[in-house]
Amino acid sequence: MKIKNKFGFLQIFISYIFLWIPLIIKFFTKILNKDIFIICLMLSLLTMVDAKMKYNNIFVKLNYFIIFFLLIIFFILIMI
C-alpha cells in the first residue's frame, strides 16, 4: 500500500508524534529521561525541516511555528 503524501502531512504528523512522546511517557511513568526528551525534540524539528524544504506551503509554515512554540512551552514545563 502506498501512502500519498500531499502538502507534507506525513512529516507534520510524525513531527507531532515525536513532540508528544516525552509528555506521554511522563504522564504514564511519572519519570522522564531528559536525554530521550531532547532526542525526541530534535527529531521532531528535523522532520518539520524536511516538510519545509520539500513543500513550504502555508500549512507547513504554520505548523513549523506551532511546533517551535510548543517546543518552548514543553521545554519550560518539563525542565522546571
Binding site: M42, L45, L46, V49, K52, M53, N56
Partner: peptide, 13 residues
C-alpha cells in the same frame, strides 16, 4: 530565506 531557516535548524542541532 527558507533554505537559511532550515539549514540553521540543522546547524544548531
Amino acid at each position: 530565506k527558507n533554505v537559511v531557516l532550515c539549514s540553521l535548524t540543522y546547524e544548531l542541532i
